[in-house]
């Protein structure tokens, strides 16, 4: 998902305290920032929320790529609003992570140095306008699958950030599907572009849920803590079941010859993505990894003088106010 393969941290805390903590979570209570929590819970959450926040921020780049080239003024305004939302979502999540004792600058530094990750999906390029449709439809669609259950996560600030995000996310997916409908019903060339976008984004979208975590101890711990609600496989299945009929409505073909409805399980059978590609992208070898981090690095450096000037301006104004009193 936006947070992939988040390793959960072991806790070396007092077993009695751990048990009481788990009981609170099992009872459905929310954990708030200043309350006692196991060190592992705190660290895992910082990593997961941080990765989620970074994904929102880096996720602006592939879409920002098309703002100046959107086909109509209306599409441009819509895309601007969507990219602005992603910035907002990143900010909600950074604030949630900060309540756990990590600073915004530390998180930025960890993203830029590669010590914190963002979702693998944003290392793929947006080559045509149809890709903007596919990103909204598939990428935001996959994100929603994960974010809706996370509204019930045990950590209060994370849960509240998720609730705000989910309220806004539906617009993102619908505007993407709207672009796909337009393209799929357009000229043969436009329809071909839509098909090509689906071909390229299908498997990377399936990768967003992360590899199967049936046997993962990390997942078991995170699920017990309710910072992960469903397994990766459950969410991936749900995503496929929901998306295939939507592709059929568009008259597009999901690029999977093995795709077949399975009456018995009440869902589709489908091919796994190429997991070696996934690990390779995570390692930094995707088509756009270097571009993405360079763009973030440059934004951070180019903004330095603005941050400094505003701090100085605020300091001077405060000093002047004191002098006037």
């Amino acid at each position: 998902m936006y947070a992939q393969m988040v390793k959960s941290e072991a806790s070396n805390d007092d077993p009695a305290k751990l048990e009481a903590f788990q009981a609170r979570i099992d009872a459905g209570e929310k954990i708030e920032p200043k309350e006692w929590m196991p060190e592992g819970y705190r660290k895992t959450l910082v990593r997961q929320i941080g990765q989620h926040a970074h994904s929102e921020i880096v996720g602006q780049l592939p879409e920002g790529n098309w703002i100046t080239r959107a086909p109509t003024l209306e599409r441009k305004a819509i895309l601007l609003a969507k990219v602005q939302d992603e910035a907002g979502h990143g900010l909600y999540l950074y604030c949630a992570a900060e309540t756990l004792g990590v600073s915004r600058d530390e998180m930025t530094e960890m993203l830029l140095s590669g010590r914190m990750k963002y979702s693998s999906i944003f290392n793929y390029p947006t080559l045509t306008w149809a890709d903007i449709g596919a990103v909204g439809w598939l990428v935001d669609g996959a994100a929603i699958m994960n974010q809706v259950p996370l509204q019930r996560t045990s950590f209060g600030p994370y849960s509240r950030a998720m609730i705000r995000i989910c309220k806004e996310e539906s617009f993102h997916q619908r505007q993407g599907y709207d672009i796909m409908m337009k393209m799929a019903k357009g000229t043969p060339e436009q329809k071909e572009m839509a098909q090509d976008a689906l071909n390229r984004f299908w498997y990377p979208s399936l990768m967003m849920f992360g590899p199967s975590d049936k046997d993962s101890v990390h997942s078991a711990q995170s699920m017990a803590w309710k910072i992960k609600i469903n397994t990766n496989d459950e969410l991936r299945q749900k995503f496929v079941d929901q998306t295939v009929p939507q592709a059929e409505y568009l008259g597009l073909t999901v690029p999977d010859p093995e795709l077949k409805w399975n009456e018995e399980k009440g869902g589709y059978d489908f091919s796994e993505p190429d997991w070696s590609e996934f690990y390779d992208v995570l390692k930094g070898n995707g088509p756009c990894n270097r571009d993405r981090i360079e763009a973030r690095q440059q934004a951070w450096e180019d903004g330095a003088w603005v941050r400094e000037a505003m701090t100085e301006h605020a300091r001077k104004r405060a000093a002047r106010r004191v002098a006037a009193e």
Binding site: L91, Y92, C95, E98, R104, R160, A161, R164, M310, T311, H313, A314, R317, A318
Partner: peptide, 12 residues
């Protein structure tokens, strides 16, 4: 209360 943010001063 809806959330928090960083800013250099009240106006920003």
């Amino acid at each position: 209360h809806v959330g928090s943010l960083h800013a250099p001063d009240a106006e920003m």
